[in-house]
């Protein structure tokens, strides 16, 4: 028999779940980061290969969606910082050993690229908005118009850059987690490729949702089918990796396969996020139907978020330490006068 308890009381994150390291904000950020990365890859690809006619959404409209998504994601990340006013500290140094530092700088490069693509596509994609911008008093003519022209001029180099940056952004969201040896479930090199494929898949799903032509919808449907298959493969490899991993990895994967996270993992992510869209896209191999394709795409997007949320949570289920309070750690909250009604203690 082995009994291991804390002789003192510990109200740290490992013991008190509400003090967890990262929660839904980081899952949102990782999801939207990958999603934007996927959009950048496909928009860049469409631009470079001159698919302006066949894939109008990818070329003209999708970059704005990506820009908004990344901004929302950054806001989520910002809101997770314990000292948000210190955010500028990220840009006072490039700490080469820190993936998060790399990520911060990648984001700094991503924004100009995606803004160029957005503005370059705006006149064709969102003519009303463009007109409104051009007619803005004072800045409209002298500033906005040249900017539009410049962006249109720069759109091909920006597109090439976007493909690279998009892939980097997708992979980075995985590498950020997998760099933590201390969280055994995250510590797998497969997490980068998995998040890359998932990011591309959600990007493709967005293209289907917003598709300007039937061709565009059909094309990205087929692409997404391949990506979902790749994602399933990588997921399987990750699970095999974990099942054959150390005790902490096995513990974390057990949480997904049969524990508290199983319902969300199997039904939510594997079932509705991957399986169902895979079937639907496969069924539409020859001909795409807008309603069905849109439904499948929404499922892919939901699945994309669930993947991040599940991985973020599972990674925090197990660690090298196994601290266990013998005293009720909830009682410590009573110190801060946010405890329960004292009359309930008897």
């Amino acid at each position: 028999m082995h009994e291991e308890v804390l002789a003192s009381v510990m109200a740290n994150a490992r013991v008190v779940p509400q003090l967890a390291i990262w929660g839904w904000q980081i899952a949102i950020y990782l999801f939207l980061g990958g999603f934007t990365g996927g959009i950048m890859v496909f928009s860049g690809w469409a631009l470079i290969t001159g698919r302006d006619e066949q894939t109008p959404f990818a070329v003209n409209r999708a970059p704005l969606v990506g820009f908004i998504a990344l901004s929302v994601g950054m806001t989520a990340l910002f809101s997770d910082l314990e000292r948000p006013l210190h955010v500028w500290r990220f840009y006072s140094i490039l700490h080469v050993t820190s993936p998060m530092s790399w990520g911060a700088w990648i984001l700094l490069l991503v924004f100009p690229a995606i803004i160029v693509l957005t503005l370059a596509g705006l006149p064709l994609g969102f003519p009303a908005l463009t007109r409104w911008l051009l007619n803005l008093p004072v800045v409209g003519k002298p500033l906005v118009q040249p900017v539009f022209k410049l962006c249109f001029f720069l759109r091909r180099p920006a597109a090439a850059l976007s493909i690279g940056l998009g892939i980097a952004l997708c992979i980075y969201t995985g590498i950020l987690l997998s760099s933590f040896n201390s969280r055994p479930f995250w510590h797998s090199a497969l997490l980068g490729p998995l998040f890359l494929v998932s990011g591309l898949s959600t990007g493709a799903a967005m293209m289907i949702l917003g598709a300007g032509t039937a061709h565009e919808r059909h094309l990205f449907g087929r692409i997404d089918l391949g990506l979902i298959l790749a994602e399933l493969t990588l997921l399987g490899l990750l699970l095999i990796d974990m099942l054959n991993g150390n005790a902490m990895q096995q513990g974390a994967v057990a949480y997904l396969l049969g524990g508290d996270g199983a319902m969300l993992f199997w039904t939510g992510f594997v079932g509705f996020g991957l399986g169902l869209p895979l079937l639907l896209e496969a069924a539409m191999w020859r001909r795409s139907f807008m309603v069905v394709a849109s439904f499948a795409s929404v499922l892919v997007l939901v699945g994309g978020f669930l993947l991040r949320d599940i991985v973020v949570t599972a990674g925090q289920q197990t660690s090298w330490t196994q601290l266990h309070n013998q005293f009720n750690p909830d009682l410590i909250s009573n110190l801060r006068n946010d405890g329960e009604d004292p009359s309930s203690r008897f």
């Binding site: 003192s8 005293f327 110190l335």
Partner: peptide
């Protein structure tokens, strides 16, 4: 004592398995 409360806020009853 609020400092000691943080170390041991309650007593336990020890019971053999």
């Amino acid at each position: 004592n609020p400092v000691l409360y943080q170390l041991m806020p309650e007593n336990l009853v020890w019971i053999h398995p």
